[in-house]
Nucleic acid binder design. Structure first.
Length: 107
DNA sequence: CCACTGACGAGTG
DNA sequence: GCACTCGCCAGTG
């Protein structure tokens, strides 16, 4: 019916994340219908650009930590600044406090 | 058109 | 508790 690419669907979900909240790849994948699609979600994020209006900085991994800068140099620091600016708190481990800021797609 | 790779996650050994 | 493997989809060579 709607040949909406998985990428597009991921973007739609990420765009629904309210400011000051974050979500995980697994959560998005689950909303897509397949908890194993986390990989595609990550790929979608990587393909995403600022022009996509996708707050990719609100998407973190299952640990509440952003992917290593090995893949995306500079993104880690940027993400941290963005979340802090939105009021998201970090733990001593340098991870997002998912217990308090993880977004529930059920709203 | 075929094969390999890639921002992950969960399961198995 | 750590290391390796499978599964998913799309993009690139």
């Amino acid at each position: 019916m709607k040949p909406l690419s998985t990428f597009q669907r991921v973007y739609e979900i990420v765009r629904q994340i309210p400011s000051g909240k974050v979500t995980t790849y697994g959560q998005i994948a689950c909303l897509l219908g397949n908890p194993r699609m986390a990989r595609v979600v990550g790929f979608a994020m990587r393909a995403c650009k600022e022009a996509d209006s996708v707050p990719w900085h609100r998407v973190v991994d299952r640990q509440g930590e952003f992917p290593v800068e090995s893949s995306i140099p500079g993104a880690g620091t940027l993400q941290r600044e963005m979340l802090i600016a939105e009021g998201v708190g970090f733990t001593a481990d340098g991870r997002v406090d998912l217990r308090r800021f993880q977004w529930y797609g059920e709203e």
